[in-house]
Design a protein around this nucleic acid. Structure first.
Length: 436
RNA sequence: GGAGGAAUGGCAGAGUGGUCGAAUGCGGCAGUCUUGAAAACUGUUGAGGGUCACACCUCCGGGGGUUCGAAUCCCUCUUCCUCCGCCA
């Protein structure tokens, strides 16, 4: 009878139910940092879970009984006692009816439970500060000199036009707003940055991957973009595929449904992909130029880790991104995101921001996060621990780095009266040292 | 796009209505032997739900159906392979 308990058996909870059952009060306290009162939803979840389990038990018993009868019928037929067999058959009708009903109930309950669970965000790490908005993020590090620019220093969108390296209007013509066209040295600088980032990442032990730019629904659920950020992704309806909003989605999903060995850790990937984001409703001065786009390039790093090691891995990723920014000689700071600004799926996130001198503001260029078991639970990404038991792995990712704002930072901070200087480490990749 | 074939445990591969959660081989793990290793031999080895622990239940690509009973029969979807067509 492979019909009914499918959903219950393959519970795709984001928080594990057992964790919720055992730590309800702690979870409520932790989620307060996100300004969420989780008490009602957790109560509902626990109630639905209890209901689900009691229906399951009842169904199991019914199935056990009808399995037993079926076996007896089989034996009777074999030994030629057809009449007795037929008599038993009649007894199974009621059981069949009952298991059908119970199966339907179970599915309905499991689905309702699932829907509730999908609404609960990840539990913030202890170090996450409480807070409502980006104002409450905590600066934990700052480095690099802010250059002194000339009087008539320009923001990057002016520089892009002046040197004819990025054409926003042309992008509007062929696609729409937020799809810039990079031209000549601008295009070359993009390519140089991608190559440079990939080289830095592979040197640090990340394996380069080229992955699909469209993903199916299961992948979207796996990393948590669905159902939370449904409206953020471009959806190709004819084929029911989503354009990726970040390489995190396809790269992390490489290990969906995997059961790893402990010796497989650490798993470290890097990948360059364009990223597509609808950014519905974002307009205004802060999204000018390269500040916010519908299509942009990003080089991502992704790790799968043993739970004991994931915070050390997070630190390594932070150090790694720092190194890159040091080499580029860009002034930057690191923020620990507060509960109110923390992404739905993340337990702890460090944002890197580069200072745009000409715009006189900080631009986010990297976001490095530990998801702990949140994604792994949806992905069914597990490993065998030393006792041979399956445990959820931890997943992490970070941008190393997002191109447009790095480019904006370079253009603005490296501008001189004689053109834009190319950061030293990029010159070999560009083949020129000035844009003029 | 058209015509056929296939999908089983980490891998390979049996299994065409009942005692099959599934033979066998390889791989993995543990042990014997060995100073150690290899070889050989012995044992063990899928995932999930449920339970204090058992019991018990579910899963043979996904979904649905037939039947007292489905890996096995039917429908449907997906994926892969072969041939044809098209094509960077």
């Amino acid at each position: 009878m492979g019909k009914f308990p499918k959903f219950a058996a393959q519970n795709k909870a984001m928080l594990q139910l057992q964790t919720i059952r055992e730590n309800k009060e702690n979870i409520i306290i932790a989620l307060k940092k996100r300004n969420i009162d989780a008490a009602p939803i957790l109560s509902k979840v626990i109630e639905l879970d209890e209901k689900r389990r009691s229906i399951q038990t009842e169904l199991d018993n019914t199935l056990a009984e009808s399995n037993k009868l079926s076996k007896e019928i089989g034996m009777l037929f074999k030994s030629g006692k057809a009449q007795e067999a037929n008599a038993l058959k009649e007894k199974t009708a009621g059981l069949k009816e009952a298991s059908k009903q119970l199966g339907d109930d179970l599915n309905a309950t499991a689905t309702a439970l699932q829907e509730e669970l999908y609404l609960i965000p990840n539990i913030p790490h202890d170090s996450v500060p409480a807070g409502n908005s980006e104002e409450d993020n905590e600066e934990v590090f700052r480095e690099g000199d802010v250059p002194t620019l000339t009087e008539n220093a320009l923001p990057h969108w002016e520089l892009a036009k002046k040197y004819d390296i990025i054409d926003f209007e042309l992008g509007v013509k062929i696609t729409g707003a937020g799809f810039p066209v990079y031209k000549g040295k601008g295009a070359r600088l993009q390519r140089a940055l991608i190559a440079y980032f990939l080289d830095k990442n592979t040197e640090a032990g990340y394996t380069e991957m080229q992955v699909p730019l469209m993903v199916n629904e299961a992948s979207g659920y796996g990393t948590g973009q669905l159902p939370d950020k449904e409206g953020q992704m471009y959806h190709v309806q004819a084929d029911d595929l989503y354009l990726i909003p970040t390489a995190e989605v396809p790269v992390t999903n490489l290990h969906r449904d995997d059961i790893l060995a402990e010796s497989d850790f650490p798993i470290k990937y890097t990948g360059y992909t364009p990223c597509f984001r609808r950014e519905a409703g974002s307009y205004g001065a802060h999204v000018r130029g390269l500040n916010r786009l519908h299509q942009f390039d990003k080089v991502e790093i992704v790790r799968m880790e043993h739970p004991n090691n994931s915070y050390q891995a997070l630190d390594e990723m932070v150090e790694h991104v720092k190194n890159i920014l040091r080499e580029l000689k860009l002034p930057y700071r690191i923020l620990r995101l507060c509960g109110g600004d923390l992404g739905f799926t993340s337990a702890l996130t460090y944002d890197f921001e580069v200072f745009s001198t000409a715009q006189d503001r900080w631009l986010e260029i990297s976001s490095v996060s530990n998801f702990e078991t949140f994604q792994a639970n949806r992905l069914k990404l597990r490993f065998k621990d030393e006792n041979g038991k399956s445990q959820l792995a931890h997943t992490l990712n970070g941008s190393a780095l997002a191109l447009p704002r790095v480019l904006a930072g370079i253009l603005e901070n490296y501008q001189t009266e004689n053109g834009i200087k190319i950061p030293e480490v990029l010159v070999p990749y560009c083949g020129f040292d000035t844009i003029d």
